[in-house]
Amino acid sequence: MNADSFIWWDWVDRHLGEIRTATYEHLRLTVIAVGLGFVLSLALALLSLRWRAARAIVTGLAGLLYTIPSLALFAVLVTITGFSTLTAEIGLVGYTLLILVRNIIEGIEGVPAAVREAAEGMGLNPLRRLVAVDLRLATPAIVAGLRIATVTTVGLVTVTGLIGMGGYGSFIDEGLKRSFSTEIVVGAGLSVVMAMALDSVLVGIQRVLTPWQRSSRHRTNLGYELPKPIA
């Protein structure tokens, strides 16, 4: 094994346990951030669709938040909430809001007026219209937002690692401090792999959720399945 080697597989071998723990931490921070971000964004988007004034405020603030450099944001947050998961999540969730809110709003507004009119005219109540029509048809836009938010968050979690929140960032942090390239490569590389993996999962979910966007050539026209009632 050469001391100048870019990556020491030897090191990787000896630190598999740590890598596993970091992967878990990284994934956990990401999933919680995107999950919370989605729930919050959904609420904010619905609020914005309801009241014009709310929309300007919500998108304005989310946009502002998005422009703050991540390292600066985390540094400031640490002075308030300390070195905690809370600190990390506040920042991470904050960065997902702009993309998610915007995509949810765009998705719902993209539902054709005739479709909405039909839903209302056929006696679907407001909740059913939202869940069974608006959100369903907004799925491609929403998933597109989730993909960007997820990939971004995976990257940002490496930054929270630099301020001691665990995850792949801690490898990069250590590698930089010790000028040890193996750790940097492992941290950065695994982060990219996780981003791509989660992205594929979301693509898969979208395919399952939006069968009407698939070509009919692969479906048989013999017989049909009545789906669940529109609810």
Binding site: A114, A118, L137, W212, P227, I230
Partner: peptide, 23 residues
């Protein structure tokens, strides 16, 4: 029956027709 039909794009023809009976 609205202009341009206004069918639900995400539901099959059968499901579109079945909307109100299912409701």
């Amino acid at each position: 029956v609205i202009q341009q039909a206004g069918l639900f794009p995400h539901r099959t023809v059968a499901a579109n027709i079945a909307t109100v009976p299912q409701l």
